[in-house]
Nucleic acid binder design. Sequence first.
DNA 1: CTGCATCCGGTTCGATACTG
DNA 2: CAGTATCGAACCGGATGCAG
Lengths: 118, 118
Amino acid sequence: MHQILSPDTFDAACPARALLTRLADKWVMLVLLALRTGPMRNGALLRRIDGLSQKMLTQTLRGLERDGLVLRTMFDVVPPHVEYQLTEGGEEIARLVDQIDRWIRDSIAGNPAAGPAA
Amino acid sequence: MHQILSPDTFDAACPARALLTRLADKWVMLVLLALRTGPMRNGALLRRIDGLSQKMLTQTLRGLERDGLVLRTMFDVVPPHVEYQLTEGGEEIARLVDQIDRWIRDSIAGNPAAGPAA
DNA sequence: CTGCATCCGGTTCGATACTG
DNA sequence: CAGTATCGAACCGGATGCAG
């Protein structure tokens, strides 16, 4: 277990680090942000996130599902209709990711030339 | 520019998304967390973050430096002495990353069996 | 519409050896 | 101690084709 304010090493075997590592992925972040506006279908996510392929979307959603951050709801109709939404935990994380995103955008707005650097 | 609460797509060319994407990396997150305790040397970071190679550390630090989140200080002595520390912006981001980390650890502590899922 | 299986090129990454 | 250079292996990720 790694924790701040202690001299502990960040053990690769730590379950918390494993999860953090899974979240540390660009598609994961973008999907979490996208889902903040509400439940969405596969196609909608695909259309909304530029550059995201079907393969990576499915893979990302499955991972988020396994980690309990996203809920998948299947409506048994034809043609198939599937919706994805954030769980409570997912919303918590997504909120924090959004804060990072906001900080970045504010930061860039303030320094149009470069990144966050002065 | 992508932003929450708007129907905008998450444009791959958006500078904010580019930066978010760079932060969405496991070593970046871990290094930011590690540096929260204060300035650190190359070797210390290497020792502290299990599984981190010299190559990836350098690469990660260079990236964070370019984005203005980490400051590199070189003391001109032999043997060489270099210290890395968070900038103001770096601390902001690191704080948010730490909140994600905390949430994860609390969540796991509450549900030892599985992940964040209920 | 949703999603899986396969292929395969590009990138990443770790190990090692070397420099100042 | 800090960092670079090189190389081969592993992984990632997109394209395509197929299925329920």
